[in-house]
């Protein structure tokens, strides 16, 4: 019965895409589907999720303009990101994703760079583009959950974490990661989202009585650039 309903859901979703404003670009449609996947995951609606995923898989994919140049820029950007040279990394990764908008890794790392720079709307957009190309990319779902956590959006953080678990290559590892966040994360939204995700899947977890505190409440070298951190926000007066 339910399967039948879900088979019917696929064309319905396709029609849903059709009723989007004519001016809506593919990117907007993809974002819509990613949001659908988040919402369905938060409701633990596996069949609906699969149906949306299928629609997303059929959406047109961008073509590379300069795949070789993009690869070189991506490698440069990744190395810079690992050295924590965030601004330079961002420049290189933007170049990579513009040269090859189908390069999933470049887009994923671009999202990471934006998140590290606390540019959350841009991080969200890059990660959504990543997921539109590869909806089962657990790492990107996880980073998107962190973005929503930083935006204090528990509901969407739960959906993104639920998809992290759903698409994890090793679910037991993902389970432990979720438990770690649920028990030790100082930021309330992400911790509560991990807790809700574990409950969604009926996985065991010990709820901390005393919420964890940041181990480093904004301590940084005297000459470092001031950057708003989650830890600083968590430290109450």
């Amino acid at each position: 019965m339910y399967n039948t309903l879900c088979v019917a859901l696929v064309p319905l979703l396709a029609i849903g895409a059709g009723v989007l404003p004519a001016s809506a670009q593919t990117t907007d449609q993809n974002r819509y589907y990613i949001q659908q996947m988040i919402e369905l995951a938060a409701n633990n609606d596996e069949h609906g999720l699969t149906a949306t995923q299928q629609v997303l898989a059929q959406s047109p994919k961008p073509q590379p303009k300069d795949a070789v140049g993009a690869r070189a820029a991506f490698e440069r950007g990744r190395a810079l990101l690992e050295q924590d040279q965030l601004d330079a990394a961002l420049t290189a990764l933007r170049q990579a994703s513009q040269s090859d908008p189908s390069n999933v890794e470049a887009l994923n790392y671009l999202g990471l760079a934006y998140r590290k720079l606390n540019r959350l709307p841009e991080a969200e957009a890059a990660l959504q583009q990543t997921l539109a190309l590869e909806p089962t990319r657990a790492v990107a779902w996880f980073q998107l959950a962190q973005v929503y956590g930083l935006q204090n959006d528990t509901r969407r953080a739960v959906g993104a974490l639920a998809n992290t678990y759903r698409f994890a290559e090793n679910p037991m590892r993902a389970e432990e990661i979720l438990r770690n966040i649920a028990e030790n994360e100082a930021a309330d939204t992400l911790r509560n989202a991990a807790l809700d995700t574990l409950r969604l899947y009926k996985l065991p977890v010990a709820t901390p009585i005393v919420p964890p505190l940041p181990t480093n409440p904004g301590i940084r070298p005297l000459n470092s650039r001031s950057r708003s951190t989650q830890a600083q926000r968590s430290a109450a007066s």
């Binding site: 990471l112 657990a138 505190l213």
Partner: peptide, 17 residues
């Protein structure tokens, strides 16, 4: 899913009492 250093980013904000 390719091996990706960012998954280790779990600990970006997670603290260990």
């Amino acid at each position: 899913v390719p091996p990706d250093p960012t998954i280790a980013d779990t600990a970006v904000t997670a603290t260990h009492p």
